[in-house]
């Protein structure tokens, strides 16, 4: 089945994108990423520990030749910091892709939309392929599309909350509002949440804690892989209409005692 996801000319082999935070160690990160079948892997940009150089590097485990490394600007609370982090990420990395996050509040980790738009404008002009983390607001999604973002990444629920798809109707409106791909980012807690996002017609799902926070991250990574595939197939298949009353699936003709 030809159902490729292509964004800004880049072909994505999987519709499941994964983060690399919150794992026990690099070995577990590597195994979970492998089990998920993802080819987009998000990473954060942080200061190098100059006093303890013995530490291993994440990229020794996640091979940038094998995976698409998507640096994020997690932890940035201003447009300036996010722009600066994105530029550093491009210098340290291998591509122009950036997952743009400008956080508005520590407690909810909801995005600061005003600052997000400001940062996105600057980065798009500088040739970045911008994937903005935004809330599930169709108006905001349209604005991000209009300034040249490659996709929009609305949250399904707060980052790391595992609350699932809290507002499927807004996601649906976003899908009808924008022409660029919609990648659900944040909030997915278990496989059925991922399937719901895909059944709605979303193009991909990015998750981290949903896998890393499971009792058995490797099993959950595999579950998510199947959920994404199943959800996408169900969306493509087109579900049956919902009806209030029963409708027999066995023919009535020829039944006994008639």
């Amino acid at each position: 089945m030809d159902d490729k996801l292509i964004i800004s000319g880049i072909e994505f082999k999987s519709r499941l994108w994964v983060g690399t935070g919150k794992y026990k160690d690099f070995e577990e990160t590597k195994k979970a990423v492998e089990a998920s079948g993802a080819d987009v892997v998000t990473v954060a940009v942080r200061r190098v520990n100059i006093t303890d150089r013995g530490k291993e590097n994440l990229l020794d485990y996640i091979d940038p030749k094998k995976y698409k490394i998507l640096p994020n600007t997690a932890g940035c609370y201003t447009a300036e910091d996010a722009i600066r982090t994105a530029r550093l990420a491009r210098t340290a990395g291998v591509s122009d892709m950036v997952k743009l996050e400008v956080i508005g509040d520590e407690k909810t980790l909801f995005p600061d939309n005003e600052a997000l738009l400001e940062a996105a404008k600057v980065l798009v002009k500088e040739g970045f392929i911008v994937f903005p983390y935004t809330n599930d607001d169709p108006i905001m999604a349209k604005k991000l599309q209009d300034i040249g973002c490659a996709a929009v990444m609305p949250l399904a629920a707060p980052i790391g909350s595992g609350l699932g798809i809290r507002n499927p109707y807004n996601l649906k409106i976003i899908l009808e509002t924008v022409k660029i791909p919609v990648v659900v980012d944040a909030g997915v807690g278990t496989a059925s949440d991922a399937a719901i996002a895909m059944e709605l017609g979303c193009d991909a799902v990015l998750m981290n804690t949903g896998i890393a926070g499971a009792k058995d991250p490797l099993k959950m990574a595999e579950a998510m892989k199947h959920a994404i595939i199943a959800g996408r197939l169900a969306y493509k298949a087109g579900r049956m209409p919902m009806k209030l009353y029963a409708s027999a699936s066995s023919p009535l003709e020829g039944k006994i005692g008639g």
Binding site: G19, T20, G21, V45, V48, L58, A89, G160
Partner: peptide, 10 residues
Amino acid sequence: VSFIGGGAIG
């Protein structure tokens, strides 16, 4: 700076 593990840590 360099890359570390991260999804979306605030």
